[in-house]
């Protein structure tokens, strides 16, 4: 029994990987339905955002930090992946009502799917970030090789956290409303818009109690600061991510028997 709780969350990923992939593509396809550019919007959106923010930060606010737009963008893109996944996952069980109440598909799949569809979205936006690095004459070092590892860590962490609001929202639809505010608050607690050195030291410690803040820091290491992420930090985050995933998955799993009655 104990062993099953540890292995099943990963077995499920393996068993349904193709379905998860197909469902994630479906989500994106629906998001861009009817548009001329379709999936290209996953690249165009960040590009347009980037131009607006660059104008705002560099021209209007005259932010003097070096290559500030690059700093901002290397952080906001993975943050968006996290935050959109959380938001969509919260609603995922309810919007997949017919699957949950009339098929034997494990409901965990619909939560994981939302994280994967936003991952695809994130992956598509990375080339834009590279273009931007080149435009700012910054070098793309082979620190980029760390990226897949960081992405795997973020995937498990996001999915693990997402299982909680996804569960609660079935019982209390209010969760969806609260999530928006929580994510907004969390956004300001993570050094995406500002540098961690800009805040008082005692708050710095507070901010780094949050594993997401560490993740964002690693993205900054790779793209902005060009320093090798500390391996022990990566290892620790990987461990945390796996634990969060297993705990979240099993929590969801323990509650899902009654989902069909609440939908």
């Amino acid at each position: 029994m104990k062993q099953k709780a540890l292995v099943y969350p990963f077995y499920l990923l393996y068993k349904y990987h193709y379905l998860i992939y197909m469902l994630a593509l479906k989500e994106l396809k629906i998001r861009y339905r009817g548009s001329v550019f379709g999936f290209l919007w996953s690249m165009l959106n960040p590009l347009l955002n980037l131009l607006v923010y660059t104008f705002l930060f560099v021209v209007v606010f005259k932010n003097t930090a070096k290559h500030y737009p690059v700093y901002f963008f290397s952080g906001i893109l993975p943050w968006n992946w996290f935050s959109l996944s959380m938001m969509e996952a919260t609603d995922s069980v309810i919007s997949a009502e017919s699957l949950v109440t009339r098929s034997t598909l494990p409901a965990e799949i619909v939560v994981i799917t939302r994280v994967v569809s936003n991952l695809i979205n994130y992956l598509l936006s990375i080339p834009i970030l590279f273009l931007f690095l080149l435009a700012f004459k910054m070098k793309i070092s082979f620190l980029v090789l760390w990226l897949p590892i960081v992405i795997v860590i973020q995937f498990f962490m996001t999915a693990g956290f997402a299982f909680f609001p996804a569960t609660w929202n079935v019982f209390y639809r209010d969760v969806r409303q609260i999530m928006q505010t929580i994510l907004q608050l969390l956004f300001f607690c993570v050094p995406v818009m500002y540098f961690d050195t800009q805040i008082p030291l005692k708050y710095q410690k507070l901010i780094y109690l949050n594993p997401i803040a560490y993740l964002i820091k690693i993205y900054h290491d790779i793209f902005y600061d060009n320093i090798t992420p500390r391996p022990e930090l990566i290892l620790l985050l990987f461990f945390i991510a796996i634990v969060v995933y297993i705990v979240g998955f099993n929590y969801f799993h323990s509650k899902k028997d009654v989902f069909a009655e609440y939908l």
Binding site: Y18, L19, M22, K26, K29, I30, S98, L99, R102, S103
Partner: peptide
């Protein structure tokens, strides 16, 4: 295998072929 409804996992925006694949997997 329960067939409790027709078109398990179908989505109107997807093509017939895509729906067959997703529904079959489900």
């Amino acid at each position: 295998a329960p067939l409790l409804e027709l078109g398990t996992g179908f989505h109107p925006e997807l093509t017939g072929r895509e729906n067959i694949i997703i529904s079959g997997l489900i």
